[in-house]
Simulated scan of single mutants.
Amino acid sequence: MTHMILVAHGKLAIETKASGEMIYGQLPMVSAVAFSKEDGLDSLSLKIKEICDQQEGQLLILTDLFCGTPYNAGCKVAMEEPERQIEVLSGMSLPMLLEGVSRNATTAADLASIMKLASSEACRSFREQQIELEEEF
């Protein structure tokens, strides 16, 4: 099983995991890392690496913003451990997390693909959906 590490600005990762557990139940395959104002790239990378060192197998690091410090720290850890399959995704959301924990993907890369698709499908517009329904009738 692929272990997921959520990393985001402030306490977003911790709260996203807590929200996921509210819906799905305990998520032992998910860790969360807070990124505070006092942290920098190196200290955040160290936090991520400590979690990676406690896990066996493949990892998926899910971050909030593309090219933000959490994303860059995840990429740094992935580049420092090329022998491990570590995938890094940005755009973390609750639907993305729930899709990831409900799937039994064989690799971190497969899980990343599933979660990217779930992310794009989760964003919906009421107005657009209302128009589509009106056109059907």
Rank of each mutant, 00 (worst) to 15 (best):
I51E: 01
T106C: 10
R103W: 05
E80D: 13
R84P: 07
L89A: 10
C67F: 14
S119Y: 04
A18N: 14
Q85D: 13
S102P: 03
Q130E: 15
S45R: 00
S90F: 11
C52Y: 02
V77C: 03
S36E: 15
E128Y: 04
K76S: 13
R127Y: 14
A32E: 06
E56H: 12
E134P: 04
L65Q: 10
D39A: 03
E136C: 08
A32G: 13
E132W: 09
M115I: 08
L60C: 09
H9I: 09
M96W: 01
A108C: 06
A18G: 08
I48F: 03
L89R: 03
A78T: 09
A32N: 09
R127C: 09
E99A: 12
V33H: 00
I14G: 03
D42F: 06
V77D: 02
G100I: 01
I5L: 11
D39Y: 02
G68D: 07
Q55E: 15
L117H: 13
H9Y: 06
A13H: 05
F126S: 10
P95N: 09
V101P: 03
E21A: 06
A8R: 02
N104Q: 11
E15S: 11
R103V: 11
I5S: 03
C52W: 01
S102T: 15
S36Y: 10
D110W: 01
D64G: 06
L59P: 06
Q129P: 11
E56N: 14
E15K: 10
L46S: 10
E15R: 07
T2F: 02
I14E: 12
V30H: 01
S93Y: 09
L133C: 10
S43G: 06
E83I: 00
A8G: 12
S120K: 15
L41W: 04
Q26S: 13
E121M: 15
P82K: 03
F35K: 00
V30P: 03
S90K: 05
D39E: 07
I114K: 04
N72H: 12
E87R: 04
G91M: 08
C123V: 15
E99N: 07
A108G: 04
K17E: 07
V7A: 15
S119T: 15
Q129H: 14
L59F: 06
S125F: 11
D42I: 06
Y24V: 10
Y71M: 13
K11F: 08
E80M: 13
F126W: 14
E80A: 14
D39G: 05
G40Y: 03
Y71A: 11
A122I: 13
Q54W: 09
E15V: 09
E87C: 14
I131Y: 08
T107G: 03
C75M: 15
E56G: 14
D64M: 05
M29Q: 15
A109Y: 03
L41E: 06
T107S: 13
